[in-house]
Nucleic acid binder design. Structure first.
Lengths: 227, 227
DNA sequence: CCCATTATTCAACACCTGTTGAAATAGGAG
DNA sequence: CTCCTATTTCAACAGGTGTTGAATAATGGG
């Protein structure tokens, strides 16, 4: 080492990195790796900056994760809240299909947020739970409302407990989004593109017969997702 | 690397810490923490030895994990295989309830093996998959056979695809075992002890109506688990 | 033009991880 | 008793993690 290690410029690079760009990178890495496996250095690499910069914008890795979710959750929540509007008089089966479609639209490409909703996070990092539980609660409350309305309208069996039915419907949709793309093409001969939709249709077919007051009544046609 | 199981022909001594004790400790820690989060030092601490000793009996952390599973899986497999015996003429609904009971009996207290069956591991550590996939396949094959027999006996709707039905039934049971003990007592007012059983009954109630050829026919009484 | 603020980086800390090679310990064989 | 070999530990490595404090460059206001 005959040369003095010349320190590279420390100041801001010509291209400034906004907090939103950090959130983009963080979202991508969190989505792929999950909360625990994602490293701040990987996020920084993707954003094109040093890991320390994250601490200028966010208090901690956890705070960064919360910020990512705070950006995503409202859209899901809004869709689900609108779906639960009691003035929606479409058949309950169709509204439950919409529940699956909303999950599909917002969570299809984001394992990180799926893991969160699934509740893994609540187990792993207790610090996260209170704030995030408050974000998840309205989501399940909306779905639960659809079941309650279905019972009131005489379409759903009154013995069905909305809370448990919500749990079953939503949890399975998360599993479908998570593993069916890789599992179904092996089990049956299906292109991975159709695996999720095929699974969703089969699931609602079974689930709706399970909760409907009149299971003989056929399912209405289920529209494909639009996006 | 040397791992001679039981035959120590004229071995030097009964070792203070046998491989089985390491497996016990590893099983406990893996069960609580999962494969990735469990550390070899934690396992060694529980076994009362140094982490390096693990490498005398097992080639790697992964090999240790595989050894733990190789000890557990056969029992589950045997129960499920016996259940799928075509000479079992009990009502299909009751046999499906037995599927849930088998999962309950063997996996209730072991999140680690649940995570494995769920397929997380296959995603995370590719090295594990081939050997373990071969252990999981007969499990799902047995359940699938029960559905196929149910269709042949005119108890299950012929449109039901045994593979997908197996996926739905088993995946949900894993979710029930995983999260209902902590979630259900909050949602409804239930002691955590009854949460799992309540969830299982509600699940089979919905699921069986969903797949049964005659959904009006009531479920047979579902016996509580014995152990 | 200077100066304070903001944005960014560097280097390091303290800790944890799976893994390994060498050294110590023991118990039985000769 | 001595030696041999199976067991067990110690210490360290190389790499990873989240996090922090100080240093630095660019920017915009006075």
């Amino acid at each position: 080492m005959p040369f003095h290690p010349v320190p590279r410029p420390r100041g801001p690079k010509p291209s400034r990195i906004a907090a939103s760009q950090l959130l983009d990178a963080a979202q991508a890495v969190f989505a792929q790796e999950g909360l625990q496996a994602a490293s701040l250095r990987a996020i920084a690499r993707k954003a094109g900056c040093d890991a320390a910069l994250i601490y200028y914008h966010f208090a901690s890795k956890e705070a960064l994760f919360q910020a990512v979710l705070a950006r995503r959750f409202p859209a899901v929540l809004a869709d689900m809240h609108q779906l639960a509007d009691p003035s929606d008089t479409r058949p309950t089966a169709l509204r439950l299909w919409d529940v699956l479609l909303i999950y599909h639209r917002h969570l299809r490409d984001d394992p990180g947020i799926r893991a969160l909703i699934r509740g893994e996070i609540v187990r792993g990092a207790e610090g996260l739970s209170p704030l995030l539980a408050d974000q998840i609660r309205p989501l399940t409350a909306s779905i639960s409302a659809v079941f309650a309305q279905g019972i009131a309208r005489g379409e759903v069996r009154p013995e069905v407990q909305p809370m448990l039915a919500t749990f079953f419907l939503a949890k399975m949709q998360l599993e479908i989004l998570d593993v069916l793309p890789s599992v179904l093409p092996v089990l049956m001969e299906l292109p991975p593109e159709e695996a999720v939709l095929t699974g969703m249709r089969a699931w609602l077919d079974i689930f709706w017969r399970g909760v409907a007051l009149d299971p003989g009544h056929p399912l209405p046609p289920l529209p494909a997702p639009i996006d």
